[in-house]
Design a protein around this nucleic acid. Structure first.
Lengths: 230, 230, 230, 230
DNA sequence: GATGAATGAGCCTTCATTCAT
DNA sequence: TATGAATGAAGGCTCATTCAT
């Protein structure tokens, strides 16, 4: 493999090395994230992280300056995904309800992967002052997204009039909770959860467009919730 | 004061002491719970707990055998409240939706007090094997209550057909999240939150009893959510 | 009981009290000694001593100023017995061998009671400088007694010529060891042990007085050791 | 130096490191044993052990998992020596008296070195349940060896008929006591003590083979004891 | 005289982090 | 780059001892 790459270009080895390094760094990150989730940040020792990676503790310091930095990166990765999802949704446009449903789906999916779980299961107070502020700000951004979409929905009529702040809290809470109970290979797949929650959490918010459609729209609440059962 | 008590009964002093002791124990518990919530269990030192109580660290050991036991008691107190609420609701009876709404209200209120927050913000893996199992079992009981009421509601027609497990997760998640964002003296009072969430989380689940009443029942979703705004 | 004594004399109550106090003090002492022997001085807490006596820890301080003083008294009592035994033996006189045998018996018996065991099983370094010195001196006195008798025996011909210091160490060691393995109600009674050791530890030391008596005296070694078997 | 080693073998560095580590571990062990003997297990702090080794307390944890494990190893080393001695004696064979004398010598020598002293001067109740059981069992094995040899001697006629259990206790006690009074550079060398005790403790046990030899054999008791003096 | 409560001192242990090799 | 070894900081816990009641 390296031989093959070496032929491609003279700087490949550097590239090679950098990539190898990045891969290792990422491996550390993922292992650490898993351990953090498994036993909690404090009880997760760097020794254990290193051991699981078949390296030694000081070796970790080649990739990270401190344990806290590892935690910080976990947050970064998780929040990058959330940010990307929001950016994409914003870009795509659509009415409030549509965007809200998209965000719910994306966020639900995020809650089923390690770095997403880190966002809601690890304690950001372990971070340094600066990192902590950043994480808090980003979390607020996420919450704002929920609120923005709801407000937009209320404005454009796709969502019933409601308290956007409380509604956002309710929705975010439901989603965050996924990070606590989801187990890979469990009853529900990530996709199922995402879809179900998109329905579940918006049924009560959907505005009924016309009186005429009301007869059909109203039962949708039930329809959505029953979907799994059918 | 002592003369007055002496007349009451000869064993009053004992009773007195016992009460004083219990009060102190409770004071320790509350202070510890607050600190646990403030900075996290691990970063909360017994020294700090003691200092805040104007006593010294070893004095805490008059009331608790270990830091873990303090945590355990926090869980116990919180869960006792949940258990009591469920017992009371079960006893009162009513259709599924009614009981579910009661539970939501009770649980939301629980999430606004220290020992309730402990249930969802502290890490039960800090507990000993036995205590951990107990806490887990009790948490499962709480979740079961949500599910039971939903199932009952589906059966008695007060709740639309849905996946009770997922619905319970969604509701529990929303409520647990309150424990993370609620601040005393903040925008919403505990009561407001409880009421709003009772509506918010059940609107989508309410079955429409008759076609005739449908016209009134259906909009309730909106009504509930709008209530705050009006 | 107190009523009966009260009739005896007007100062009886005082006497009574003093005696009651002394009895209690002694009870504390014995309980403490037992616990010290059971679990070791350090692991024996005053709390446990008090609990076993159905009193509370601070109550112990009515009788003793410190834990160390309790230990000190244990030593005192044990050593008083040794001292008394030696004094009595010295007073009674007799040849070296006779006195040595008496001391062996007395010391063996001492090793089967609590305060005697304390002498050899507890660590005198726990004591304060002064008490430690005293105990050391007294232990030396005991050892000197063994040596004195052996030397006297060698001088008066009742004991074969030998190194008194080493012989005393050997004998004292055998006896001290009793304090480690003796169990009340075990295979051997205290009396049996005392007698057997008196023979066992002196057989090799007996001089054969005359050639004529040698035929009887020499086998005594065997006789003594076989005594139990017969 | 490294060049020289490099020539020896490629794995020398590893071997080197392992050896250095083992040496350090052993150094810790010996220093700890000495301190344990000096001031007692409880009063010996790991800080003091470390300080005497010119390292810091946590460094000890590179070699041992706990203070108790250090104690455990001390016992192990001492008992290994006893076990080896017994095995060697058993292998060499000989009549009961011969083996008994060998064991006495070996055990006496053991009592003059640190790890041997640990066996009799430290409190095995400080050990964990398991280690404690092991140590107790091993101590019993040692005592059994004494008893076995005496019984064998009685059976083969090299030792007079006696109570093997008591005789073993007496001998073991004398020997254990050495561990309490022996001081390096004192009056007696370890070798002297071993030889003297071998005689001292068996003289009384020797059977006189024939009446004719009795004249020479009998005084042997005296001879042995006098040996030092001559 | 006795007790509940509190304290001060001290020790074992853990762990992130650094350093020499 | 990787490792074994070492460290500093810190926290939980125990226990003899004191004090107010």
């Amino acid at each position: 493999m390296s031989a093959k790459r070496a032929q491609v270009s003279p700087w490949a080895p550097f590239e090679d090395r950098r990539r190898a390094r990045d891969e290792k760094k990422h491996a550390v990150l993922r292992m650490a994230a898993q351990l953090f989730l498994d036993v909690g940040y404090h009880r997760a020792t760097l020794n254990e992280v290193a051991t699981r990676l078949n390296i030694t503790k000081p070796a970790l310091y080649n990739y990270f300056r401190s344990k806290e930095e590892i935690l910080d990166e976990c947050y970064r990765l998780g929040q990058q995904m959330a940010e990307d999802a929001i950016a994409e949704i914003d870009e795509a446009g659509g009415d409030g309800l549509t965007r809200l449903r998209k965000l719910i789906r994306a966020y639900a999916l995020l809650m089923t992967i390690d770095f997403g779980m880190c966002l809601v299961r690890l304690d950001d107070r372990e971070l340094s002052e600066d990192a902590h502020r950043r994480v808090r700000a980003e979390k607020r951004q996420d919450d704002r997204a929920f609120r923005r979409y709801i407000e937009a929905g209320v404005a454009d009529g796709s969502i019933v009039d409601c308290d956007p702040k409380l509604a956002a809290f309710a929705i975010a809470g439901s989603l965050n909770w996924i990070g606590h109970w989801y187990r890979e290979g469990g009853t529900y797949s990530a996709e199922e959860i995402a879809n179900q929650f998109a329905d579940l959490l918006t049924t009560g918010l959907q505005a009924r467009r016309t009186r005429g459609r009301n007869h059909k729209a109203a039962p949708r609440a039930g329809v959505a919730l029953r979907s799994k059962r059918r």
